[in-house]
Simulated scan of single mutants.
Amino acid sequence: MRTSKPITVTLGPQLASLEARLKSGEYASASEVMRAALRALDRQDAALDDYLRAKVQASVKDPRPSVPAAEVFKRLRARHARTMKAAKRGT
Rank of each mutant, 00 (worst) to 15 (best):
Q57N: 13
S24N: 01
G25P: 00
G90N: 13
L18T: 05
P68K: 06
D62N: 04
R35D: 06
A16R: 09
D49A: 15
M1P: 03
A46K: 04
D49H: 11
V9E: 02
G12N: 05
H80T: 07
L11K: 00
S59Y: 13
F73I: 13
R2C: 05
A47T: 05
A30Y: 05
R75E: 07
D62K: 01
R35Q: 10
R77T: 10
V60S: 00
A54K: 07
A86T: 09
Q57D: 14
L76N: 07
A40E: 12
P6M: 04
D45L: 15
G12Y: 02
D50L: 12
R64I: 10
L48I: 15
D45G: 08
R82G: 03
V33R: 00
E32D: 08
M1T: 11
V33E: 00
R43G: 07
A78N: 01
V60L: 11
K5Y: 07
A46Y: 03
S29Y: 10
R43A: 13
D62A: 01
F73Q: 06
M34I: 14
A58L: 06
D50C: 09
M1C: 04
E26P: 01
M34Q: 02
K74A: 06
D45N: 11
T3N: 10
A40W: 09
L18F: 14
V67Q: 01
S31Y: 02
S66K: 09
A20I: 12
M34C: 08
K61L: 14
T3K: 08
L15H: 03
T91A: 13
D45R: 12
Y51S: 08
V67S: 01
L52E: 04
P6W: 08
D45E: 13
T91N: 08
R79I: 14
L76G: 04
R75C: 05
V33C: 04
M84D: 10
V56N: 01
R75P: 01
R79A: 13
R77G: 01
T10C: 02
D49E: 15
E26F: 05
R64Q: 12
A20K: 06
A47Y: 12
K88T: 09
R39P: 03
D50G: 07
S29E: 01
P65N: 02
R21C: 10
P6L: 06
Q44F: 15
A28G: 11
A16G: 04
K74L: 11
D49C: 08
V67E: 03
L18V: 15
E26H: 03
V9S: 00
L48T: 09
A20T: 07
A58C: 05
R21K: 12
L76Q: 12
A86H: 08
P6Y: 05
L41I: 10
T91L: 15
E26D: 04
L52Q: 03
S29L: 07
L52T: 03
S24F: 02
V67I: 11
V9C: 00
A46F: 04
T91R: 12
A36Q: 00
A37N: 04
R43Y: 13
